[in-house]
Simulated scan of single mutants.
Amino acid sequence: MINILSYICIGIGIFFWFWGTFPLMGKRSVLFKLHSLSVADTLGSILIVFGLLLKKPSEWPLLLLAIITLAIWNTMLGYVLAFCSGEGDHNEPQS
């Protein structure tokens, strides 16, 4: 039963990876595309690592660290890329 649940989590994670790439082909703004991709990638990666956690519970410290790192890193990377993709000079004072 655990193997089936593990494969389901991994499969859903891979589905999220592919699902996040479809908005890249649309005609929406870069920020919308980036947000869709980063959310789907983060959820997919966390589900894949969770599926691995179900298969190898003896490795829980490393896999839990991977889940936490994915959540923090992908979130911060999305914010940084969104900030850098904005127009204009961000160092100018606003008047």
Rank of each mutant, 00 (worst) to 15 (best):
G78Y: 15
G51C: 06
V80G: 03
C84A: 08
V80E: 09
C84K: 11
G44P: 01
V80M: 15
P23V: 03
F32M: 05
G88S: 06
W73N: 00
N3Q: 06
C9Q: 02
M1L: 00
L52I: 12
I14H: 02
S58W: 04
V80W: 15
R28M: 07
W60P: 02
G78L: 12
D89K: 08
E92M: 12
S85F: 13
L37S: 06
W60G: 01
D41P: 00
L31F: 15
L77E: 09
E87N: 11
W60H: 06
G78R: 14
L24T: 01
S36Y: 10
G51L: 07
I14V: 10
A71P: 01
L34H: 14
H90D: 07
I4N: 00
Q94Y: 09
G13S: 03
L34N: 14
L64N: 05
I14F: 12
D89T: 04
F32T: 10
S36T: 08
D41W: 11
F18N: 07
V30R: 11
L34A: 12
L52K: 11
G13W: 11
T75W: 15
V39H: 12
R28Y: 13
L64M: 15
S36P: 03
T75R: 13
T69V: 08
P23S: 04
I8H: 04
L43A: 07
Q94L: 05
L47I: 11
L77V: 11
L53T: 09
S95R: 06
W17L: 05
A66I: 05
E59D: 09
P57Y: 01
G51T: 10
W19G: 01
P61G: 00
L47A: 13
C9I: 01
P93W: 13
L34Y: 12
K55L: 13
M1N: 00
M25W: 10
P93H: 10
V80N: 10
A40F: 12
M1F: 00
K56R: 12
W17T: 03
L47M: 15
G11A: 15
S58P: 00
C84V: 09
V39E: 14
N91P: 01
A82P: 11
P57F: 00
G51D: 14
Y7R: 09
A82Y: 06
S29E: 11
G20Y: 08
Y79I: 08
K33V: 03
L62H: 03
N91Q: 12
G86S: 10
W73M: 00
N91A: 13
F83I: 14
T75L: 14
H35L: 13
G51K: 04
W73A: 00
I48N: 10
L64V: 15
I72F: 02
L54M: 15
W73C: 00
L43W: 14
S6D: 02
E87A: 11
N3K: 07
G88Q: 05
S45V: 07
S38I: 14
F50N: 02
L37T: 06
L53C: 05
S45L: 11
D89A: 04
S58R: 05
K56S: 08
I10T: 01
S58T: 05
G44L: 04
H90F: 15
E59K: 05
V49G: 03
K27V: 06
I14S: 02
S45D: 04
